[in-house]
C-alpha cells in the first residue's frame, strides 16, 4: 500500500499535509485569517487559542474591507507541525471565518511591524541613540530635551534588535503593533470583496 501521492505542503487543506505527525520540532507560522467583521469575532479567535492551549506570539486585527465587512487577523503562532495544522483547521471551521492562509508555507511573504520606543537619556547616550536610530531608519516622532520617541517599521527581528540596542541607552517604554503580513507577488487580493472572492465564497471553497 503506497502512501497518498500528494506533495507535502502544497495543499491549503491541512489534512493533506503529510509531514510526520510525531515531529516534535517547534515551528513558527504566520497565519492570515479573513473574517466577518462582526461583534465578538476577535474574542472567538482568541478564545480558540486559549481554550485549546495554543500559543499566540503576535496578533493584529483591523478591518480591511469596509464594504465587504471583512477584517484580517494576522496571528503568529508556535507549535509542532501537528498543532499548527490543528490551529488552521480549527480556525477554518469557525462560522465567521472566510479564509485561513499559512503565509509561512504558501510561498514567500513580507512581514512588517511598527513600534514606538521612548528613550530617555542625556549627553553621549542621547547622541548614540539618535545615531543608531539613523542606522535602523527609525524616525523621531517626538522629542524633548531629555527624551525621544522613535518610530520604527520592519520585521519583528529588526525591532527586537533595535529595542535591545536602546535598552542601555535609556529605553523607557515600548509599544508594538504586532505583525502584519502579505504574500509576495501579484497573486491574491485576499479578503477584499472583489468579484473573485465573492465567487470563492459562494462556491463554498472554505470548508
Amino acid at each position: 500500500m503506497s502512501p497518498l501521492k500528494i506533495k507535502k505542503g502544497t495543499s491549503k487543506h491541512s489534512a493533506y499535509d503529510l509531514r510526520s505527525n510525531y515531529a516534535d520540532t517547534q515551528e513558527t507560522h504566520t497565519l492570515a485569517v479573513i473574517v466577518d467583521n462582526e461583534a465578538g469575532v476577535l474574542a472567538r479567535v482568541i478564545g480558540l487559542f486559549s481554550g485549546r492551549g495554543y500559543n499566540i506570539d503576535s496578533l493584529t486585527v483591523a478591518e480591511i474591507d469596509h464594504q465587504g465587512h471583512r477584517s484580517r487577523i494576522t496571528v503568529v503562532t508556535t507549535g509542532t507541525p501537528q498543532v499548527i495544522e490543528q490551529i488552521k483547521s480549527q480556525l477554518s471551521r469557525m462560522v465567521p471565518v472566510y479564509e485561513v492562509h499559512d503565509l509561512t508555507v504558501e510561498g514567500p511573504s513580507v512581514e512588517r511591524e511598527l513600534a514606538l520606543l521612548k528613550v530617555v537619556g542625556e549627553g553621549e547616550k542621547r547622541v548614540e541613540a539618535l545615531r543608531l536610530a539613523d542606522i535602523f531608519r527609525a524616525n523621531v516622532v517626538d522629542s524633548t530635551l531629555e527624551s525621544f520617541v522613535f518610530e520604527i517599521t520592519g520585521p519583528p527581528e529588526k525591532i527586537d534588535a533595535f529595542a535591545e540596542l536602546m535598552r542601555p541607552l535609556g529605553l523607557e517604554e515600548v509599544a508594538r503593533t504586532g505583525v502584519a503580513a502579505l504574500s509576495r507577488g501579484g497573486s491574491g487580493s485576499l479578503g477584499v470583496a472583489s468579484d473573485k472572492v465573492t465567487a470563492d465564497v459562494t462556491g463554498g471553497a472554505n470548508a
Partner: peptide, 10 residues
C-alpha cells in the same frame, strides 16, 4: 470536520 483529522491519531 477537517479539524478531526490528525488531531489525535495520524
Amino acid at each position: 470536520d477537517p479539524s478531526s483529522i490528525n488531531k489525535v491519531i495520524h
